[in-house]
Design a protein around this nucleic acid. Sequence first.
RNA 1: GGCGAUGUAGCUCAGCUGGUUAGAGCGCACGGCUCAUAUCCGUGGUGUCCGGGGUUCAAGUCCCUGCAUCGCCA
Length: 651
Amino acid sequence: MTTYITTPIYYVNAMPHLGHAYTTIVADTYARFRRLAGDEVRFQTGTDEHGEKIVQAAEREGETPRQYVDRISEAFRRTWPLLAVEPDNFIRTTDPGHIRVVQEILQKVHDSGDIYFSEYSGHYCQGCERFLTEKELKDGKCPDHLTEPAEINEQNYFFRMSRYQDWLIDHIRKNPDFITPERYRNEVLSFLSEPLEDLCISRPTSRLTWGIPLPFDDKFVTYVWFDALINYVTGIGYPDGPEFEKYWSVAEHVIAKDILKPHAIYWPTMLRAAGLAPYRRLHVHGYWNVDETKMSKSLGNVVRPRELVEEYGVDTVRYFLLREMSFGLDSSFSSEAIVARQNSDLANDLGNLFSRVLTMIGKYADGMVPEADPSALTGAEQELVDAAEKMITSYQEAMDGFSFHQGLQAVWDLIGLLNRYIVTNAPWELAKDEQQAGRLRTVLYHLAEGLRLIALVLRPVMPGAADRMAAALGLADSMAGATLTADGRWGGMRAGTRVDRGPQLFPRLDKKKKKPQPAGQKTRKKDKKSRAAAQEELPEGMITFDQFGKVELRVAEIVAAEKIEKADRLLRLTLRAPEERTVVAGIARHYRPGELVGKRVLIVANLKPAKLMGVTSQGMVLAAKETDADGNERLVLATVDGDIAPGSRVA
RNA sequence: GGCGAUGUAGCUCAGCUGGUUAGAGCGCACGGCUCAUAUCCGUGGUGUCCGGGGUUCAAGUCCCUGCAUCGCCA
């Protein structure tokens, strides 16, 4: 059996965050799981590097697009080892091999008549990198970017996607697991119940040059999605590499729900038009909310994988993400939740189980796994063996269906049973009685064997911790090449194996140890008593709801903006909130005055006025600050998600 | 506005094609053990299964309707 698993290639206009980390860890875990099941596996990730937004981002950073994409792509590449993610291939859409294949496919689809030239006019939004329909506009502006789209009348190439609509509907209906979980399959079918429009796949070079030139018309470059999706086949050597034959028929993609449409609709129809088979499965997951709200730059609650690993360790992070989220649904991320998982699941249940078993083998069996005494077997052992085999089966089913949380639950059921088995059989009592020596050896053997199976199935999820478990069990060498078929059944532990307790697998974490919370998070409702208590011993860096309430935040509309002479980072803004006021903001390096007018921003309205470069500032504009790996700062104004009157209070 | 999903214990969620006193984990309370990372084991409680109608011998589970939240589409 073979497996080909991919993550999306990540758009390099932002640094890696929790969402990227989750998708990639899922794919890595699945790759490791399939290898454990005996498959030959190919796992690919990479970066998507063309398009207008990249050009703009590069400009902001004062770099050429090439320098910029090299830098960010490298940041992604360097992130994966921190998460114990080991892809077989890291593809970039700026790789010459990829570019060549994209052009070949375009030519092929063009030759077969599925690409045509047509005139198009409409409202083009730069932020969205696409034309907006009349109905999408709000007050003549793009609802997402609050900017007025440009009226553009241009000629472009279109992919005849509509031609494959019926085929696609049929294919999805006939293959229930083509798109999973089911909710997303339904969503796609519902979308397909309306006539599909053809896809505009070109951008004129007059507007954009950072892209792959169309092979049949050098006055155009390729639309990013038509370019990016093709990475899944170029990465395995399409058209004539041997790997392509081997892996394409079993291709599985993992994505987040925001890019469902390109993957469920554009991509299969593109493949069909190019004469290629569709991928086998598409796995769609939800979002991580951070402290109950969406993760976004403007809220300043973006979670960085590097920081997580530094704080909790890679195994805990992987375990938490896979255990906490029901694949497909949204989930909440918080430091409390991860600490709770670490302490109760990893330290108390699993870590402590290893510790107590290994100590007892040390004390009662000279540190060597004893041989079970067949004459001392009871129903308890049978129950344990049955449960272990059942665990392996449900684990495999769950992992294969991307139900990682259920797979882990099955493992923890066995961990619970082993802990109970210890208590009911009380080896410390057996050790006191010579007559019970056979019984003691039997119990200890069964415990060691249970641990072996647990270490085995945890390898895909927590590779590092599983290695440490294997080492403690004296199985460091044999575990490395283990498979579920050969080693996933009861009885693989050899009597006489020397065990070594080693250091704690998972230390307990102090619950109070916690980062300062980002501003704006919801305060938990508490009764009066505990709220009063909270005031007395407030964790460092936290404020009470009342204290927060003293800050008067408001929405303000920027009506004018101009540079302040001699100050290279200050702008004088005239705001309506709803009264007119002047605010000095240190954003001159990040925004040009012209692009600010009309924006609705958030301000602190009751800040004591202050003079900056001779101008009195009546308040403060909120912006999120980001510092990248190289220490470059970037400011993004905090704004509101929708149309609301200037002066509205923010609470 | 159209389509869809979700709404179950303090929290996070399981409950397949309707069938005995509605479940798990965490948290909480009490008890037990001592091999163990103040860990583990046992016991316990609370639920208008979102509201309102209906079908049925029987509904958290099906139908209608309302509310709330979210998503996709326009």
